[in-house]
Amino acid sequence: MLKLHYNLEKVSMGLVAGIILAASVGGIVEIAPLFMIEETIEIPEDMRPHTPLELAGREIYIREGCYACHSQMVRSLADELDRYGPYSLAAESAYDHPMLWGSKRTGPDIARLGEKYSDDWHRAHLINPRDVVPASIMPSYPWLMRSLDTQLLSRQLGTLARLGVPYDDDMIAAAVADARAQSQPEADGADAVRERYGDDIAVRAFDSDPSQLTEMDALVAYLQSLGTLTNAPYQTLGGGSE
């Protein structure tokens, strides 16, 4: 063995091949089956993708690095079930490119945040967290009241559709209009959004001002959607919607 290695050390390409070989095995064994298994994971029937407004909010969530302090993955541990709710299922993030499971809880997990607090609470909390939670160490995000840039929104839905997220041509074409309508409950388009994404989606003036579409609208819509894309986690834990 030692003699073999003695000779290997004289051939640079031999070392290269050895390194590639040794470093490939683990990845192949652990990752490749996940794609086979995925086909057997059932996406719940009521599972929906994010609406354009929620997707725009998700992009803001990513832009501001929220995932560095908030996980979206409730582990199957008793205290986490008691604190946050049902543990997270693989199906819940099946449409997430990328996933935002997170790795650190400087703040609490928010996988089950949707509809736990009011829109007003979220707006106040994002503008200055210490106004509603005095001991909070979360940064303030006062700039979120600026208007939402929807220039790329349609293309974003289109790109995700190419990656397998169930957005149809209708949804892609109407993305900007849908984003606007979801934050204007009185507008004409509101029913169309519900038609496309289901009656359970929230159609509200998330930033309390229906006249303008802001980043706050998008981010609050996203936060309110967390854990509400499917009811499956609650059923796994033994029926009922609570």
Binding site: G27, E30, I31, L34, F35, E38, I41, E59, A90, A91, E92, S93, A94, Y95, D96, H97, P98, M99, W101, L152, R155, Q156, T159, L160, R162, L163, G164, V165
Partner: peptide, 25 residues
């Protein structure tokens, strides 16, 4: 997959649980 070749915006081709595994790999 870039959203547009003129923008610093893209979506990873991996999703959900596979993305998590590849991310930590």
């Amino acid at each position: 997959l870039p959203v547009s070749f003129g923008a610093a915006d893209s979506f990873t081709i991996w999703a959900g649980v596979q993305d998590a595994m590849i991310q930590w790999w």
